[in-house]
Design a protein around this nucleic acid. Structure first.
Length: 280
DNA sequence: CACACAACCTGTCAGC
DNA sequence: TGCTGACAGGTTGTGT
């Protein structure tokens, strides 16, 4: 499911219901997600007030009373859905259920269990292994052409793979990398090094635009992704290449029946969608 | 060090 | 209907 826009959408929805509320009960239905949950996770969260919700890359970082940070990563299939209580029977893969003092119920569901959570002291944030070493936020001031070029220069790996690397830029995933490279007319198989310079300069604002538009649309809804309020994001209707193998790309006037349209290839084990006639 | 690939886990869909 | 294989939005760890 979730790349930066989806995680931001979830953070927003959670903030509306959780900020300032106290967690009066936490039901934990299994000891682990992708990794073991911290010792006494549910017990340590119970009774604490939620202070603020932030996002870094694809992580949701929730400050709770007592100087703790509750970290959530949704993995591929995780969701946090908020509903008015009381809670019914947990559905399949409802691994954690959080109850607020004003009667809302937040359920973490994750079929594939690639997601994970942590709970640690605020002071340990900078050195947290999942957060240290992340690249700049693509929507922040720290993301700029000079910096991006610096990280791409000398790298032989394909630009597609480099942009998926969270150390290069934090928060992009398979969909938005494909879409950004398409909009920029950059062939995903080109070496990262060859994109440093003028192409990186064009790419930076395009990445910002794609992400901003997706956030404004409430993210993309694929398969079972739902926002925390149960609404559906609709940015998937704006995809120009992702998931559109064989269709016309809409930018070049090629006839998909004759040229094959959008192509799907595999790079570093992930599907890449692109138009070989429009992207060079 | 840089890069490719398998693994983690479950579900769905296409093809036979 | 049922089986098999491919594939799915991410990240980590291993191997070359």
């Amino acid at each position: 499911m979730p790349e930066l826009p989806e995680v931001e959408t979830v953070r927003n929805g959670l903030a509306l219901k959780l900020q300032g509320r106290r967690l009066v009960r936490v039901d934990q239905h299994r000891p682990d997600l992708r990794f073991p949950l911290p010792i006494d996770f549910a017990q340590r969260l119970t009774g604490r007030q939620v202070q603020s919700l932030d996002r870094r890359a694809k992580y949701i970082l929730i400050r709770v009373e007592g100087g703790l940070v509750w970290m959530i990563h949704l993995g591929m299939s995780g969701s946090m859905v908020v509903k008015p209580g009381p809670a019914g029977r947990p559905a399949a893969h409802d691994h954690l259920v959080f109850h607020t003092d004003d009667g809302w119920v937040v359920t973490y569901n994750d079929t594939r269990r690639f997601g994970f959570m942590d709970l640690f002291d605020e002071a340990a944030m900078d050195s947290h292994p999942m957060l240290a070493g992340l690249g700049p936020e693509p929507l922040g001031n720290g993301f700029h052409a000079d910096g991006l070029s610096g990280r791409l220069r000398g790298r032989a790996a394909p630009i597609k793979s480099m942009l998926l690397d969270q150390k290069v830029v934090a928060g992009l995933g398979n969909i938005y990398v494909c879409e950004a490279l398409f909009r920029a007319g950059i062939d995903p198989t080109r070496s990262a090094d060859s994109v440093a310079g003028a192409d990186a300069e064009r790419l930076v604002p395009i990445i910002r635009d794609v992400l901003s538009e997706a956030i404004a649309a409430g993210g993309s809804t694929l398969r079972d992704f739902v926002q925390s309020d149960g609404e559906l994001g609709y940015f998937q209707h704006s995809f120009q290449v992702y998931g559109r193998e064989g269709e016309g790309c809409g930018r070049c006037d090629c006839d998909p029946a004759a040229t094959g349209g959008v192509k799907r290839i595999t790079q570093s084990g992930r599907s890449t969608f692109f138009c070989p006639r429009y992207q060079h």
